[in-house]
Design a protein around this nucleic acid. Sequence first.
RNA 1: GGCUCCGUAGCCAAGUGGCUAAGGCAGCGGAUUGCAAAUCCGCCAUCGUGGGUUCAACUCCCACCGGAGCCUCCA
Length: 548
Amino acid sequence: MITNTIRIYNTLTKSKDVFQTIQTGKVGMYLCGPTVYAEAHIGHMVGPVIFDTIKRFLVYCGYEVTWVVNITDVDDKLINKSREKGISMFQLATSMTADYLSNLQSLGVDQIDHLPRATDHMDEIIRFVQELIEKNFAYVNGGDVFFDVLKDSEYGRLSNRSVDSQQGEGGDAASRKRSPGDFALWKSARADEPSWASPWGLGRPGWHIECSAMSRRILGKTFDIHGGGLDLVFPHHENELAQSRCCHGQPMVTYWLHNGLMQAAEAKGKVGGKNDRDEASHAKPTGVSPEPANSVSPEPGNSAAPANSAETKISRSKGAGGLAKLIEKHTGERIRFFLLRSHYRSTTLFGDEQLAEAGASLEAFYRLIQRFERISGQSFYDATSLKYNRHRSEFVAPVTSNEAILEVIRLREAFLAKMDDDFNTGGATGDLFEMARSLNRFIDSQRLEEAVGRTPSNLDLFAQGMGILKELGAILGIFMKPPKQSSNKEGSTEILDGLMKLLIQVRTEARAKRDFAMSDSVRNGLTAIGITLQDGKEGTTWSIERSS
RNA sequence: GGCUCCGUAGCCAAGUGGCUAAGGCAGCGGAUUGCAAAUCCGCCAUCGUGGGUUCAACUCCCACCGGAGCCUCCA
């Protein structure tokens, strides 16, 4: 059963529209993926994470969703970069695609159904160009094919631009265009460039046509949702839209979604943007004095670092696998949660401090989950252990008059209402924090930490409450598996557990004898190496502090 | 220059024409604890500036100041 109370902000209409699918119960969505010429940076993850969340939410609401993310593996940048590196374009694309996919996996983006590569769809691309020529929306000049912008009366509507304000690319291509705003559908290849045979000679596709061709093949001529970064609105999406609409005589997409761009804290410009890439770009006469050169970069995370340092550095180093390192330091779940804390349409301030803060707040959930596992003796993460509801329409509220649990039920509604409102994950996470507080309050008020409070009905109610937390976590794609511990715990778990047991026993005996000097010495020593002890009603527990 | 968007507490960040303006981080007070940690309770904002519309605006309109994006490859 479908539950639809969703409204989506649509770039095309510039308003929040009621969500209505083309086919009942089915959703087709397409997200513009990367051009795989360099390692991914955090900015590349915004779209995938929000779309992954959108798909989870739509599935939760009862839809059958097909999600496509394309991989652009042929492009001028790829050609140039592969030459630079002395490898083939194919090799470069393969390794950078692998990097991209592993980053997605780390962030829990696992809902993608199709990852089409442009080079695997040359036939469809060529056919698409052919159709546009036949329908007189495109023209051939030399070995190039251009889209004729003036033939499309609706051109410019998505990005709110008039045709005469279009500025086309200059260079030798300009002379072969009818009007400057025309863009290439097919580019003739020079002898030393990768190329494919076509009716117009050897060449490669233009930048925009692959998305039109691949989305048509997989999702059809008209589909529900198309997304990408705000920077793609023009020219990429405007052109894609023009190609598809002109070719098919019907709308390409119902809802155009655009995510805001990441901005490096204490740095100018978006992450991965011009300022990041162009080391020596003081060309702009902005009147601002050139930044001081930052030669030595302090340890990231050192908040005492001078401005123009750590945070800026992270985005700058994207060419050297910046994101993979970031994930290693902060864990994928932390980065995902960080991205979800703000609204996808807003510009997000990104920096080491912001990430650390997201991590600190996440700890409260992890502690609650540990508390649950300790009390109930069952796993929170194991799919067969804690029951939770996968579909919105199947929800059955726990029967109780307990205030804390009633609050959890109320917060679930609030959470879902926020998700309904243009996928407001930033607002929804707020409800999650309140939910955690309510669940802790339930534990405290019912004395679940002690044997006396663990009545079957209390334990059952508690499990139902935690099930709601898990239900909502699953929509956001978090709390699906245990958080990553420090890497050095791997492989030595048993020895570590044994040692900790021993130390705790020694300390407990000292405390029993009221030898607090001794017990504090043990605890302080452990704290110093990153292990935290917690004295509870039923003994002492320990945990390793995760990287900050 | 053209076209968009943003400016909410020390920091991050939701949100609304009228009820106490979410939540997080940090901080402070209390309960709890041998002391801590964790947890719970409480405190911590008149929403960039100046006008206007309105019975009523942080929320709508205008101007200004400040910031970002696109117009060229970009998630």
